[in-house]
Computed example of a mutant assay.
Amino acid sequence: MENTKDDLSEEPAVQPQMLREEQAAKTISDLDDLVQAVLKSLPSSKPWQRQLHAYLNDIDRLTQVLRMTVAMNRPAGEVGDAAQDLRTALRVAQRYVGTGRADFGTKAAVGIACELGVRIDATLSA
């Protein structure tokens, strides 16, 4: 099977797109795993913990929306909107734990989640 010049010129454009999608999918999965771990480990006995649970549940929902938007090959605008909504929710949660009574481990986990959101947004917008 011989490759024509046109076949070779299309391959490099497709491969970076596939690599970006794979990288975004892995980062979304990492974010989802982290959020689930924090949700499971954080008790909800105090008001600030219940509020953080609400923020994390919202982040979980928005992560699933982004995952489905990417999986369904929606237009770039919809993917960008979903990523922006997720980043906004992550920033809200980070600001909340930064000014609240959360322990250092919870603050660190939410900070890492926020960084993963930045990485997802950068990967999808590239």
Rank of each mutant, 00 (worst) to 15 (best):
A122E: 15
R119Y: 04
L34H: 12
A89R: 06
A24N: 05
A109L: 09
Q51R: 09
Q51W: 05
S9A: 15
A109P: 07
G80W: 06
A89N: 05
R74M: 13
L8E: 08
A126C: 02
K107W: 02
C114S: 09
A76V: 07
T106S: 06
A54V: 04
Y96V: 05
Q51T: 08
A37G: 04
P47R: 00
V97E: 07
V97L: 08
R67L: 07
G111Y: 07
V70T: 02
R50T: 13
A54W: 04
R87A: 04
L42F: 01
E78W: 13
V14I: 15
L31K: 02
V110Y: 00
I59R: 14
Q23W: 00
N57T: 10
D60F: 10
Q17D: 13
R119K: 15
D6H: 05
L39H: 07
M1E: 01
L42W: 00
D121H: 09
D121G: 10
V65T: 12
L31W: 06
Q84I: 14
A126R: 09
N57C: 02
G77K: 09
G80Q: 06
D121K: 14
V65Y: 07
P43F: 08
T99A: 10
A25Q: 12
R119W: 08
V65S: 11
R20K: 14
M18H: 08
T63E: 06
R61F: 01
V14A: 15
L8T: 10
S41K: 15
R61L: 06
R101A: 11
D30Q: 14
Q49R: 01
Q23H: 03
V118G: 09
W48A: 03
G111C: 11
D7P: 01
M18E: 15
M72A: 12
L52M: 03
N57A: 10
Q84M: 10
V35T: 15
V35H: 01
L31F: 06
P16L: 04
D7L: 14
R61G: 07
V70S: 00
R87V: 14
N57M: 14
V14L: 15
S45D: 14
E2I: 11
Q94W: 07
R119N: 13
P12N: 06
Q36T: 13
L66K: 12
R87F: 10
E78Q: 12
K46Y: 07
E11L: 13
R61K: 09
E78P: 05
V79M: 04
T63C: 00
R87D: 02
L62I: 09
D60P: 03
N3I: 00
G111F: 11
L86C: 13
F104E: 12
M18C: 13
I28V: 07
R61M: 09
L34Q: 08
A122P: 05
V38H: 03
Q15V: 15
